[in-house]
């Protein structure tokens, strides 16, 4: 319960910051002003400015959009492709399952970074190509998890009971398998969300992700790396934002899993 609340608050803050940034930011996050370079926190610039004189708070707020956008698209691609694939590999004919597994291994063996570079080369480096690359690279982890947990559900007596009740394969997958693996998938989503946020930061840092001047937490890190010794604030601010985002999504996932499990209902009432 506490996980859920803390996670929801952290994620809620990010969402709020992103939403507000559409209407208002303290400054234009892309506005360069040499006179305001590397200023410390002040009444006007709450977290100071970077080496181009841009306001950090404004950049964080707009960067939150990028973060959410990346997370939602990357995790969406991974979950929406990976989960049905995994369930299909478990419930479908054996040979099809084998093919899915092998394809999975292939993607898994392929370095995600290389994939992102290839996507970047083919479609041009942008936030969208970065997150699709991250999503594609994350598909196997969903497919594997979905297949393993679906196999477990398929071996239960309630699935046997459903078959003898007259349910056919697709109905069993939808009515019994999906609801029973949903909890695990949700947790996987939140973990992957964290990883996607990190990966976007890493790709942007390498110049393969979000392109200037669009603010992104990863790019904030990249642009300030030489200043680590003199102005650590410039790295700490986006670093802490990324860490809190990852933490928030992980806690939210844990909390949601517990919330959605009817078996824990009694325990919750007691505890």
């Amino acid at each position: 319960m506490r996980n859920l609340v803390i996670g929801a608050v952290l994620v809620g803050l990010i969402v709020l910051a992103a939403l507000i940034s559409f209407l208002w930011t303290p400054f234009d996050p892309t506005q360069v002003d040499a006179a305001l370079r590397l200023q410390g926190p002040s009444g006007a610039h709450w977290l100071g400015t970077d080496r181009f004189g841009r306001d950090l708070v404004s950049q964080l707020m707009v960067g939150a959009r990028t973060t959410l956008y990346v997370g939602i698209v990357a995790v969406g691609v991974a979950a929406l492709v990976g989960t049905p694939l995994g369930v299909f590999a478990a419930a479908g004919p054996r040979w099809l399952g084998e093919i899915v597994l092998r394809a999975n291994d292939l993607v898994l063996a392929f370095p995600a970074l290389l994939l992102a570079i290839m996507f970047g080369a083919a479609f041009g480096a942008s936030t969208l190509t970065a997150m699709i690359a991250i999503g594609v690279a994350t598909v196997p982890s969903f497919a594997r998890l979905a297949r393993a947990s679906a196999l477990q559900v398929l071996s239960t007596e309630y699935v046997l009971a459903a078959r003898s009740a007259g349910r056919t394969g697709p109905a069993i997958s939808v009515r019994h398998v999906l609801p029973n693996i949903a909890g695990l998938i949700i947790v996987q989503c939140s973990v992957s969300f964290g990883i996607a946020v990190l990966a976007e930061a890493a790709l942007s840092y390498l110049g393969l992700g979000t392109q200037p001047p669009t603010p992104s937490w990863g790019r904030m890190l990249q642009e300030s790396q030489e200043l680590l010794a003199v102005q650590p604030r410039l790295l700490i601010v986006p670093g802490v934002a990324i860490a809190l985002a990852v933490l928030g999504f992980t806690l939210l996932g844990d909390g949601l899993r517990d919330r959605f499990d009817p078996r824990l209902e009694g325990a919750r009432a007691q505890g």
Partner: peptide
């Protein structure tokens, strides 16, 4: 129709009892 051994394992933990009982009818 079949009744299985494990009284917990043969009922889907995520379904309400009325949906469990109605399953053969729905199917």
């Amino acid at each position: 129709q079949v009744v299985f051994q494990d009284p917990m394992g043969s009922l889907d933990p995520r379904m309400r009892v009325r949906d469990i009982i109605a399953e053969p009818l729905v199917a």
